[in-house]
């Protein structure tokens, strides 16, 4: 219930940003291809974080993204969190400055999830900063960013294979990799997992050329990953997450407890799946 309320509030913000983003970002696409500076960010950060001060990353969070986006529809982004610091990271907001809806996702982490690494894939419509803002338990914000040159062209941010995308809607896949990192507690083991969900994650900003109406957006807006009763992470998503949303993350897993995933999209469809995680793979 609590999650749901947050989702709705966030929807409004994302929707509002979609409108603001169009105004802000359009001119920069056509013009200069060099780094656009912080103008866009300065104009949108108040909408996302209000008046809260945003500090530098302070070694708490780091981001890696390709300097040139080979496929603008699938730009891999890697986030690493330093849990050696006293401050646990509660949430991370992922932002693509120049996208029509800049807030790509807000991730929240369970109190004992121990998430140290999170990778996902984004749509990047133009030359843009991709930012990650971590919120630590003391309520402070820490920002890191990477500049991505989206090459544009052939791979428009639209579904490559539209029929297949709809035919497999909501299908999930979970992979578990072995991790060499040591866990913070003796009860858990650091586990490297990849969650994949089939979904077109349509942006809805595409116009029907005949009717001149926008094709309605259809995307995953909420996602939770839990193990047993423990929340690992939740995500409130926007349209800047790539088609077939994909998350690879490292966390402290309890051997023998099932991984459960619940997702919901903008058409009200719910997708659920559960996987037993063999002790041997942890």
């Amino acid at each position: 219930m609590f999650e749901k309320m947050i989702l709705q509030r966030r929807d409004i913000i994302i929707a509002a940003l979609a409108v603001a983003g169009v105004l802000v970002s359009q001119p920069s696409v056509a013009e200069d291809t060099s780094s656009p500076g912080d103008a866009t960010w300065n104009s949108l950060k108040g909408d996302v974080f209000g008046q809260r001060p945003i500090g530098n990353d302070g070694g708490i969070i780091s981001i890696e993204a390709p300097k040139r986006a080979e496929d603008a529809a699938i730009v891999p982004v890697d986030l690493r969190f330093n849990t050696a610091k006293d401050q646990r990271i509660k949430a991370v907001t992922l932002i693509v400055d120049e996208n029509p809806a800049p807030v790509a996702a807000v991730f929240k982490f369970g109190p004992d999830a121990g998430v140290t690494h999170l990778a996902t894939r984004l749509r990047v419509n133009a030359y843009s900063y991709v930012r990650a803002i971590a919120e630590t338990e003391d309520g402070k914000l820490h920002m890191t960013q990477a500049f991505v040159k989206a090459s544009g062209g052939c791979s428009a941010p639209a579904t490559k294979n539209a029929d297949e995308a709809m035919a497999n809607l909501g299908k999930m896949k979970l992979r578990v990799f072995s991790s060499k990192t040591l866990s913070s507690t003796s009860m858990t083991r650091v586990t490297d997992m990849q969650l994949m969900i089939r979904h077109p994650n349509n942006s809805g900003l595409q116009m029907d050329q005949v009717t001149r109406y926008y094709i309605p957006a259809h995307f995953i807006q909420g996602l939770t990953v839990s193990q047993g009763d423990r929340l690992i992470m939740s995500m409130e998503g926007g349209i800047s997450i790539s088609e077939d949303p994909n998350f690879r993350f490292e966390f402290d897993a309890k051997p023998g407890e099932d991984i459960k995933v619940e997702a919901a999209d903008t058409e009200g469809k719910k997708f659920e799946n559960e996987w037993p995680v063999a002790t041997s793979s942890l």
Partner: peptide, 13 residues
Amino acid sequence: ESRGDYYLESYRS
């Protein structure tokens, strides 16, 4: 229909 506007925009530069 789903890519046209993007094509027009992204080839301008």
